[in-house]
């Protein structure tokens, strides 16, 4: 009960933050053109402000829990990512360290998170940018919290079962608002939420469950990134209000349609005549 309450409160705070900074949390993929990778960084370790280094260069300063940084454009290559306590010397021993190869055009998210048992860890997720169907977006749930396996509900239906820490699951859904809640696997009481998660057509919304159940810091942050490759069309109007009044299209459609009727009738007549 206590967990649930605290979680709900901090979740609200997390989402308020994201509402304000949501746009900044959008990752991108046209980087292939420039030989860069798109990288987003998520901070999911409570009470641990950090500085993040890539190949020895500080790329994020005073990075705090529940923050989503990026999208960053990184030239393709291999990166040694070091995470140090905020303000400590660049030469000090990192809290976390990992080597991440990134390729041009890749879209990835690196999460500084906790394992199920509460050990800090760097986890890299490749962001699936394949297109979703018309009018659909992708909802991705990533469990990167010190918590047991969870179930995820959209409204009253369970959409993800038994997701364990370090794992993710995705589903394509019609754009709109998904009232989502997270429960411990097999249970019904929410440990996170319910919260309204916006799903936008052509975009992925990633929900990260972060923090620690034991430490009462379970919360969620979101990231959005675009789906699909290069566009080939854009339908940007449906009302006729902006139509060029000088060129109504319907008379031509009517005349053309009449022509088609005559062609059909003529062909049918000819066929009938041949048959006769």
């Amino acid at each position: 009960m206590r967990i649930s309450k605290l979680a709900a409160a901090s979740m609200t705070a997390g989402f308020l933050f994201l509402t304000a900074g949501g746009a900044a949390a959008t990752a991108v993929s046209a980087s292939a053109a420039t030989g860069t990778a798109t990288v987003t960084v998520v901070h999911g370790i409570p009470n641990t402000p950090v500085d993040v280094y890539a190949n020895g260069k500080k790329i994020l300063s005073g990075f705090t829990f529940k923050t989503v940084a990026g999208p960053l454009q990184l030239p393709a290559g291999s990166y040694v990512i070091d995470v140090r306590k905020a303000g400590s010397a660049a030469t000090s021993t990192p809290v976390l360290s990992a080597t991440e190869p990134v390729t041009a055009g890749e879209n990835a998210t690196i999460v500084a998170a906790l394992t199920a048992s509460g050990t800090p860890v760097l986890t890299a997720f490749a962001n699936d940018t394949s297109a979703a169907g018309t009018g659909k977006g992708r909802l991705v749930v990533r469990h990167v919290a010190a918590a047991p396996a969870v179930d995820v509900y959209a409204g009253s239906s369970k959409v993800i079962s038994g997701l364990t820490s370090g794992q993710q699951q995705a589903l394509d859904v019609l754009a709109g608002t998904v009232p989502a809640k997270v429960t411990l696997a097999g249970q019904t009481a929410a440990v996170l939420g319910p919260v309204n998660v916006p799903v936008t057509a052509g975009m992925a919304t990633v929900v990260y469950a972060i923090g620690s159940a034991a430490g009462h810091t379970l919360t969620a942050v979101t990231q959005q990134y675009p789906l699909g490759g290069a566009p080939s069309s854009a339908q940007a109007g449906s009302g006729g209000l902006g139509a060029d009044p000088n060129t109504p299209v319907w008379p031509f459609a009517v005349i053309g349609g009449a022509g088609l009727v005559l062609i059909t009738a003529g062909a049918a007549g000819a066929a009938r005549r041949r048959a006769a």
């Binding site: 746009a23 959008t26 297109a131 979703a132 169907g133 018309t134 009018g135 659909k136 754009a175 936008t200 057509a201 052509g202 975009m203 992925a204 959005q224 990134y225 675009p226 789906l227 699909g228 490759g229 290069a230 566009p231 080939s232 069309s233 854009a234 339908q235 940007a236």
Partner: peptide, 16 residues
């Protein structure tokens, strides 16, 4: 301005 992406079939999604 809201971020948007591309749907299956190649149409750029436009905010509702």
């Amino acid at each position: 301005v809201l971020p948007t992406g591309v749907q299956a079939g190649g149409a750029l999604a436009i905010p509702p």
